[in-house]
Design a protein around this nucleic acid. Structure first.
Lengths: 336, 336
DNA sequence: AAAGAATAAAATACCGATAAAATTAATATA
DNA sequence: TATATTAATTTTATCGGTATTTTATTCTTT
């Protein structure tokens, strides 16, 4: 069964296409369509299975009520949380979201931008997976509004961005551990390239220094991955300066760290205290429950959508928002 | 900067729109465009920031190379795993995916169908959140191919579906527990309405009966939620027939069950063995590691996309696939 | 009653792409 | 040389909507 169109309805209702268009898009009054005609058209429309083509509408109107979301991986709880909130919020505001999962690959990201541009999305939200590549240039050239989420760029003054105040999060983590008497505190970072990681490391280093803990143990991981967390933790545990507490910079690194600690026969928090970034549903169900620095996922998503829609509406000035994280105290940190 | 179109390029290259169209869509040979013209057009196109409008293309060609994915919640690891695989596979095959998160609400689901239909997706993959509502009728009327994933309908012969062999999964779970000497085995189910849940319960009951375990303890939960798992487990633990083993029918129910058991001062698996449905990254990092019936998420996703593309290509007959689950033995089941 | 205003609806143009039909120019064949 | 072929490209129609312009009536108003 072929779908109805304005034309097929117009034929059945014995009137012109434009009349049908006006009636069905609620502009009958403005164009003073007679009550009789309105009734007739609506009657016919109800019986038909008419679904307006947003392709045609979008082509004609130059907007699609659609936004694109480029995200590194919907399979990571942190990102799926962001995706979920963004999709919901966009829907609330009348926008459909096209999700592109870049799988942390710049190539996929670049392709993703092309797809979104070609689909004429009204705006783009992106969690960049790496550097500010040429693909970003294309978005700028296409004059499509964009807001960067979570990760951002050094010189990223071109677009608004919304992120956690990662520096402050790290400060809070160190302060919490110091307040619990820890002095030998290590830090396992994620992607070296990611600004989020760099800011956290900076917060960690500054705060260690502030407390006169110059002997801070800074282990360089290279990825926000379980494997990385596992490997780096093993190095720490077997090294000369085994710490009493570890700050891990993501929920994935945490899982690897926990595995390494458990396998070494040590116990959290009795032998090693641990504090993670990113809250996670399951942190409540691990033994012990994991203390962490929670990112304001919901707020980030809401603000990102809000800023994007402002840009779509024509607003030109960019905002750089750092939203405050929260310390969630559970059972993985113990006083020494 | 306004985007280039075929027209703007045609002007610069001093030729007609159709010539440009042919060159840029790689049909120069077929329409024997001269080498000189091809070169000229490509030169101009390279310098411009042309992105073809998929709206126009879609409108004209009657296809959009886009599929829709309706899913209950990208924030649930099981579903986000499915979403992730589907998005990746669709992309491999040249399709873009529009994800609609229904948040387990039939209203959102219905709206989602409308959006997808209006956007003229070539096909739809859906994990239904409830009953076969009128919204499904609309999809059928619109003659848009659809494949149902994971959950399916009783009389669902209309569409192909791909799901885990949930019955078999439950059988495997009971057999594993019986092999470990358990006889007092309880089962906490999820949504009563979901076919997946019903099949698992059926598998559980049949197998209990087969082993002569008539005294099976069947607890009715009503949702695939942590809260449900927690509440029902508490009832079980405090009831007269406290089981030695529990089968929980989803990863969320598991988290609630673990919390309840731990809070009651009992230990897994010493006091109670537990086996879950759905494998989950974190099952490896809980204490103890959780034994489970793993669904073939990747295979389900691949087959679903494959079937959908076949339907899009014109294939009419429907397939009903039940893919085999796997038993993942970890540490949460102990012989009695 | 005739000119002007208001009402109701239809006709047309357009968005940007593709496909089919038409046109022109160059070349081959009878 | 007249005619048929082939090559190279342009013109036109179309997809399904919305916005603008035009047309045909009916109602005022002096």
């Amino acid at each position: 069964m072929a779908l109805d169109t304005l034309a097929s309805i117009a034929e059945k209702a014995q009137c012109s296409v434009s009349t049908v268009s006006r009636v069905l898009s609620g502009k009958a009054d403005r164009y003073r369509i007679s009550e009789a005609t309105v009734a007739r058209v609506q009657e016919v429309a109800k019986l038909s299975n008419y679904t307006p083509s947003l392709l045609a509408k979008g082509l004609r109107e130059g907007k699609t009520d659609t936004i694109g979301l480029l995200i590194p991986s919907v399979d990571d709880t942190f990102f799926s949380g962001i995706a979920s909130s963004i999709i919901a919020e966009a829907r609330n505001l009348g926008y459909t979201t096209i999700v592109v999962d870049t799988q942390e690959s710049e190539e996929n990201e670049s392709e993703g931008f092309s797809t979104l541009l070609a689909r004429k999305v009204d705006g783009i939200l992106t969690v960049p997976c790496g550097r500010e590549t040429k693909a970003f240039e294309r978005v700028a050239n296409a004059d499509v509004p964009m807001v960067v989420v979570d990760r951002y760029f050094e010189k990223g003054a071109r677009w608004s961005f919304v992120t956690t105040d990662n520096y402050k999060g790290a400060v809070m983590a160190v302060e919490h551990l110091v307040a619990n008497g820890h002095r030998r505190i290590a830090c396992i970072q994620g992607s070296l390239g990611a600004m989020t990681s760099r800011e956290r490391v900076r917060g960690y280093e500054d705060t260690m220094r502030r407390f006169g803990l110059e002997e801070h143990i800074h282990v360089s991981g290279d990825k926000f991955s379980i494997q990385n967390g596992y490997a780096e933790t093993n190095l720490l545990l077997n090294g000369p300066d085994c710490p009493t507490a570890i700050i891990v910079l993501s929920n994935k690194i945490l899982l690897g760290a926990v595995k390494a600690i458990t396998e070494s026969g040590r116990h959290i928090p009795d032998d090693v205290s641990i504090i993670s970034f990113d809250d996670n549903l399951i942190f409540n169900y691990m033994t012990p429950r994991i203390t962490c620095i929670a990112q304001p996922v919901q707020e980030i998503s809401l603000m990102a959508v809000k800023l994007l829609l402002k840009n779509i509406a024509g607003e030109k000035n960019v905002s750089h928002l750092f939203l405050p994280p929260g310390l969630v105290v559970r059972d993985s940190v113990k006083p020494v």
